[in-house]
Design a protein around this nucleic acid. Structure first.
Lengths: 191, 191
DNA sequence: GCCCAACGACTGCTTGAGCAAATATAACCG
DNA sequence: CGGTTATATTTGCTCAAGCAGTCGTTGGGC
C-alpha cells in the first residue's frame, strides 16, 4: 500500500494497476472463483452427459421438476417459479419439448387461463434413461471427490450461502429488491 | 441418431413414476441442487450490483482479467481462454466495451494477426468504482455467512470439486484437453 | 523464394432467453 | 349486471452467444 500514490497524477494508469492487482489476491475473490469454477466445471460435465440423451440442462430441469410433481405436471407459471426461467422462457421450452414429444399441454379444468405441462410416457422414459448416468456423473465429479465429513461440511456451507443469497431471485421478473433489502429472506419460498 | 433409443427398460408408466420420485430424494441430487442454487443466488446478487455500475457479469469478468494482466491487456485469444467465452464471443464483447470506451484494441507489433484488448483509463476507473461494492457483496452473501473454519472447509471442498471437474471445458466447444487448466486463479501468475 | 498448413480475428447465421405488449380469462366490487 | 383490476399464457422484438466459414498472416518444409 506504500507507493501507488507517490506521483499523484500523471501515472494514473499504474496507480490503478497496482490497486487492482492487489485486490485480485483478495481471498474473497478467490472464494467466489472457486465456487463459480466448480459450478462451471460440473455444468460442463453434466451438459455433456445430458446431450448424449438429447436434453439440454434447461430441458432436464424442466422435465425433472415436472416428474417430481404430483401427476407429472405443473402449471406453466409454477414451472417457471421452480426453474430459472421466465414465463415466456417456459412457454418456449415447453413448445420445443412438446414438439419433441417429451411433454404435452393440458388445459386446466378450473381455470381456463392456465394450462398444465405434463410429462408424456416418452418423456418419462427419456428421463429414466438419463438419470442413472446423471447420478453417476454427480458422484464421479462431485460427491465422490470428498470423504463423508468433508462433503457434509461442504454442503453445510453451501446451504448457508444458498439460504442467504436465496435462489428466488433467479427468475427474470423479480421483486428482487436490490441491495440489502433482503437481509431478511423470505427464503421459505424456494423448492 | 438413435442414441437414446435403448430398449433396455420395460415400460409401464407407474413403474417409471415411482422410480423417478424415489430418485429425487437422492442425496446426490440434493448436493447438486445446493451448489447450483448457491451459485444462482450469488450470481443474481452480483449481477444486480454490477448493473448499478453499467457492467454485465461477462463484461466484469473481461475487464477484470485484463486489469490483472501485465499492461492491462491480453490478446483476444488469450482473453477467450481465460473467460467463459468463445473467441467470437470475445470479439463481440470487446466490440461493445470498445464502443462504450472501457476497452481499446491495439495492434500486436510482432504478429499482425493478433490484436490486444487494452483497458482504457475510463475502464480502470469503472472497475475501481465497481470493485469495493463487489467485494462487499461477496462478504455479505458468501464469506461473511460462515465462520472461518466453516469457510475453510467449504473452500477446501470446492477446490477438490473444481480440480476434479476442472473448468477448462467451460468454453464453447468441448476441447476437454488438459490445456490451460488454470482458468483458475493461480494468482501467482504475475505480480 | 514458394507453397501449404496452422493460426488469429472477424462475420453470417441460428438459437435461446428476457422484456414488454397483447390476449384471454378470472375475480372483485359497486 | 357491468366495469375495473388482476392473473396466466403467448407473441414480437431485441440481444447475447456459439458454430462454422472467411480472410489475412505466419511459419515450416522444400
Amino acid at each position: 500500500m506504500s507507493k501507488y500514490n507517490r506521483n499523484n497524477i500523471p501515472r494514473v494508469k499504474y496507480c490503478y494497476d497496482e490497486r487492482v492487482t492487489n485486490v485480485f489476491d483478495d481471498p474473497r475473490i478467490t472464494a467466489v472463483g472457486l465456487l463459480f469454477e466448480a459450478h462451471a466445471g460440473l455444468s460442463a460435465r453434466f451438459d455433456a452427459q445430458l446431450e448424449e440423451h438429447g436434453l439440454s440442462a434447461v430441458e432436464f430441469e424442466v422435465i425433472t421438476r415436472l416428474a417430481r410433481s404430483p401427476g407429472n405436471q405443473l402449471r406453466m407459471t409454477d414451472l417457471a417459479a421452480q426453474t430459472s426461467l421466465s414465463t415466456s422462457g417456459v412457454t418456449r421450452v415447453v413448445d420445443r419439448m412438446e414438439r419433441d414429444g417429451l411433454l404435452m399441454r393440458r388445459a386446466c379444468p378450473n381455470d381456463r387461463r392456465s394450462s398444465y405441462a405434463v410429462v408424456t410416457a416418452a418423456g418419462l422414459q427419456r428421463l429414466n434413461e438419463t438419470l442413472p448416468g446423471h447420478l453417476q456423473m454427480i458422484e464421479q465429479w462431485f460427491t465422490g471427490q470428498l470423504d463423508p465429513e468433508a462433503l457434509t461440511a461442504l454442503l453445510d456451507g453451501l446451504r448457508r450461502v444458498r439460504d442467504a443469497a436465496h435462489p428466488c431471485a433467479t427468475a427474470g421478473s423479480d421483486d428482487v429488491d436490490p441491495e440489502q433489502a433482503a437481509t431478511a429472506d423470505n427464503a421459505a419460498r424456494q423448492h
